[in-house]
């Protein structure tokens, strides 16, 4: 237990909150790596996901590829890319993006697939172009699942961005890796606690966002008829049985 007491003492020591190796700067670096990764992974994952969800093509391939991407060992990949591209930020962003693409991709195409076909058919019957269907019907309705994919991607990236400290970069991993061999457990555990808290806060924020992006139409329908969801759930249960 005294290990944790030491870790909290480390956390509340003002000296650890100042300067370029202080907790605030390292946290900002950590968030910056996460943000850059999510943007890069978002461009790839969401775009592909929209294509797959809208057209229904490549779905089998996407399932296989994202499944195998998840199985790749991140640290091994980091070494591989760092040997190839040098010890900068690029290899870190690439390996983190490889972690983040699968949940984003899966969230996006399953979000679109979950839309009732009759809704999409109705939009088409009204004379909407394919782009309009995507932008005005499919994306708004899929938004909660897309954000949910983003949420799980963000959680994984924040937890894993510590590996940036394997290379001469910053982020909260510095506290962990710099002090591990020196057996300064207070800083190792303290750094790990900051990563955990950061992950929980960001996850909470995404949870709120997830709730707020439910399409207005869907929300109106739900509040008009509270029982609307019930039959749907029943039919799912019946399918499973």
């Amino acid at each position: 237990m005294s290990l944790f007491a030491d870790a909290f003492a480390w956390l509340f020591d003002a000296a650890n909150w100042a300067g370029p190796n202080g907790i605030p700067i390292r946290t900002l670096e950590h968030l910056l790596y996460t943000l850059v990764t999510l943007v890069a992974a978002g461009v790839v994952g969401v775009t592909l996901g929209l294509y797959i969800g809208h057209t229904g093509k490549l779905r089998g391939a996407a399932v296989i590829v994202t499944g195998s991407l998840r199985a790749l060992p991140t640290l091994g990949l980091l070494f591989l890319f760092a040997l190839w591209l040098g010890i900068g930020l690029t290899p870190v962003i690439i390996v983190l993006a490889i972690l983040a693409v699968p949940p984003l991709l899966a969230g996006t195409y399953s979000g679109i697939e979950a839309i009732e076909r009759s809704t999409v058919d109705a939009a088409r019957a009204m004379g909407m172009t394919e782009w309009q269907i995507l932008a005005k019907v499919e994306i708004p309705l899929a938004m909660p699942l897309i954000v949910s994919g983003l949420r799980s991607a963000a959680l994984q990236v924040i937890a894993t961005a510590t590996i940036a400290a394997y290379l001469p970069l910053g982020g909260l991993g510095r506290f962990v890796f710099d002090n591990l061999s020196l057996r300064r457990w207070d800083a190792v555990i303290g750094g790990a606690i900051v990563v955990t808290v950061l992950a929980l806060i960001v996850d909470g924020l995404f949870a709120l966002l997830e709730r707020s992006v439910v399409s207005r139409g869907v929300r109106a329908a739900r509040s008009r008829d509270g029982s609307a969801a019930q039959p749907a759930r029943k039919s799912v249960a019946a399918d499973a049985a």
Binding site: F79, A82, L83, I87, L167, P168, R174, F177, D178
Partner: peptide, 20 residues
């Protein structure tokens, strides 16, 4: 000082070879 966490492994060797 440039921290490279591979205990003098290939990344450190490469960093010296390419002038990092």
């Amino acid at each position: 000082f440039t921290p490279i966490n591979d205990s003098g492994g290939p990344l450190t060797v490469e960093a010296l070879a390419n002038g990092d």
